[in-house]
C-alpha cells in the first residue's frame, strides 16, 4: 500500500450523524469478490433510487471526482465489515472528517490507506457551512494534522501510530514478522503457565 502525507482533493459534506456501516454498504452486496470493485455500492440505498439511478439531490452525486467526505459524529459505527472501507476507497475517497468514528471502522480505514480524521464540533460546523452549496477543494497535510478549505483552516487529530502508518504505507503483517522470536517466546511461556488457555486444556 502506498503511503501519502499531503493531498489536494474535492470535499463534500454529508450532514448526518451515525452514518453506520450498513449505510456505507448494505449487506446484500458483500458476497461480491473485491476484485470486481466495491465503489458502486458506496452508500447505495441513500444515494440511489430503487431503479439504481443516482438521486440528483444527494450531495455525493453532485459531481465526479469527490475524494473527501465531511460527516456528522459517529461515522462508521456498527458492523465491523471492512467492505464499508472498500466501498469508500474504491470510489476514490482518501479521507473522512468527522467529530467521531466507530472504533472498528477507524482501524479498518487506516489499514486501507483511508484517513479517519477527527475534527472538533466547531470545525465540523464551519466545514459543513462552507460545503452547503457545492463541493470544494480541500488541502490535507497529514504530517501537520491540518486542513484548508477556502477560508477555513483547522487542525484534526488522529492516533500518532495511525498517522505514521498512513504516511509510510506500512503493512502490519510485515512489521509483526520482525517480532517472530518474541511471539514464539510468549507462546511458549503461556503454554507452560496457562495450559487451560489451549482448547481442552491439553496439547
Amino acid at each position: 500500500m502506498a503511503g501519502w502525507s499531503t493531498d489536494k482533493g474535492m470535499a463534500v459534506c454529508l450532514p448526518q450523524a451515525n452514518i453506520d456501516t450498513d449505510q456505507l454498504i448494505p449487506a446484500r452486496f458483500m458476497s461480491v469478490p473485491r476484485a470486481q470493485g466495491y465503489g458502486r455500492f458506496l452508500l447505495h440505498d441513500m444515494r440511489r433510487e430503487e431503479t439504481g439511478d443516482l438521486k440528483a439531490a444527494f450531495p455525493l452525486n453532485a459531481q465526479e471526482g469527490i475524494s473527501v467526505l465531511v460527516a456528522g459524529r459517529n461515522f462508521g459505527s456498527g458492523s465491523s465489515r471492512e467492505a464499508a472501507v472498500y466501498a469508500l476507497v474504491d470510489s476514490g475517497i482518501r479521507a473522512v472528517f468527522a467529530p467521531s468514528f466507530g472504533d472498528i471502522f477507524a482501524s479498518n480505514a487506516v489499514n486501507n490507506g483511508l484517513l479517519p480524521a477527527q475534527i472538533d464540533e466547531a470545525t465540523y460546523v464551519a466545514l459543513s457551512q462552507s460545503l452547503e452549496r457545492r463541493p470544494q477543494t480541500i488541502m490535507i497535510d497529514l504530517g501537520a494534522r491540518s486542513l484548508q478549505l477556502g477560508s477555513v483552516g483547522a487542525r484534526f487529530s488522529i492516533d500518532d501510530s495511525w498517522a505514521l502508518k498512513l504516511i509510510n504505507g506500512w503493512d502490519d503483517i510485515d512489521i509483526t514478522r520482525h517480532h517472530r522470536t518474541a511471539i514464539a517466546a510468549f507462546k511458549n511461556i503461556r503454554h507452560q503457565t496457562t495450559v487451560w488457555a489451549w482448547p481442552n486444556g491439553a496439547d
Binding site: S80, R81, E82, A83, V85, D103, I104, F105, S107, N108, N111, N112, D159, S161, D172, I173, I175, T176, R177, H179, I183, K187
Partner: peptide, 22 residues
Amino acid sequence: FGIGATEVAHVLATQTIWQRKP
C-alpha cells in the same frame, strides 16, 4: 473484540494483533 478483514488476515498469519489499550 471485533476486528476488520485486514486484522483477521493479520491474526490468521501471526496469531497476534496490534492494539492500543482502550
